[in-house]
Computed example of a mutant assay.
Amino acid sequence: MDKAGSLHTSVPAPPPRLYLPRNFSCSACLYGSLAEQCKGGCSPDGDAAPPPVTRKPPALGDLEPVLFGPPPPLLEPLFPPQPGASPGFAERVRRHKVRLEWVRAEPAGLRGAVRVLNLAYEKAVSVRYTLNAWASCAEVPAAYQPAGPADGLTDRFAFLLPLGAAAAEAALEFAVRYRVAGAEYWDNNEGKNYRLHQQGQGSGSAEGSVIGHPASHPVCLILLKQSPAPARCWICA
């Protein structure tokens, strides 16, 4: 017998090579089920778990400064802040169609609620305010509150006046406007407007009068001490 042939027949053939993805280096994946994810983080498609990302902490000069100190002062109303809790409020709403219900000063601004008589489905409520005695003004809409009063006759609207830091150095005045069924109604605190000032300041004795406009106008108020000569109403100008 040929030794070479005998040796060739006695050596078993090598097993077939197993071709796996290059990223499969986990022994649990090699000998276990490829359909399950191993504890080492390897995925069945052969992608190894990504290495943890390390971030360099920011330098001291890159950090934003944190200011410590007392919060900015809030505005203090010069009227009862919860008119809705006073006796006869519901009757005043029925008689005047719109009335301020409550206000609350917050760091974000002045938050409040308004009650209006439900005269029609389509209605709009807004709040007009000023920080400079009506030299300029702004107006923000109030949002209807679905969970309204239980009387079935009135609706509630909520508003937020985004005053910012400017309100800490000025006095705020506002009035409520209600438009419904082609008519317009105002709540201006019986002609005095709703006024607020910074806490700690005196209430002052600033008296104003309407110049160039009927005294029954709902919003217009120009302070005489700030206008040495008669001036036209900012609404009529």
Rank of each mutant, 00 (worst) to 15 (best):
E173L: 06
R177D: 01
A158Y: 00
E91I: 07
A108R: 13
R195W: 00
Y144M: 06
P58N: 07
A168F: 02
S227R: 12
V93A: 01
N132W: 00
C38H: 04
H96W: 06
P15R: 10
V53I: 10
W134T: 03
L221C: 04
A165W: 08
E184D: 11
I222Q: 15
A90P: 01
E64T: 09
R22V: 11
V219R: 02
G109W: 02
G40P: 05
A183K: 14
R115V: 11
A166W: 00
L7M: 14
F174R: 03
P228H: 04
R115H: 15
M1I: 12
E122V: 08
G112H: 02
A85S: 11
M1P: 13
P44K: 12
C38E: 04
S203K: 15
F159L: 12
A28Y: 09
T54I: 10
C42H: 00
L75P: 06
S6E: 14
P146D: 08
N188E: 00
N188T: 09
Y121L: 14
F89V: 06
H217Q: 04
D155M: 12
S27W: 14
H8Q: 11
E76A: 02
A28D: 13
E106H: 13
L30D: 00
R177C: 06
P83W: 04
A142L: 09
K123T: 13
P73G: 03
F89M: 06
I222G: 02
F157R: 04
G148M: 06
V127A: 00
A206D: 06
F157C: 05
F68T: 15
L63K: 08
G32W: 03
P52F: 03
E91K: 11
Y121H: 13
R95L: 11
P14V: 11
K97N: 04
S43C: 11
F89I: 10
Q82S: 10
P162K: 08
P65L: 12
L119E: 07
Y144A: 10
L34I: 10
S136W: 01
L131M: 13
R232F: 01
A105G: 15
P12S: 15
R55P: 01
L163H: 02
P107H: 05
N118M: 01
L224V: 10
V93L: 00
S209L: 10
R95N: 07
A229I: 14
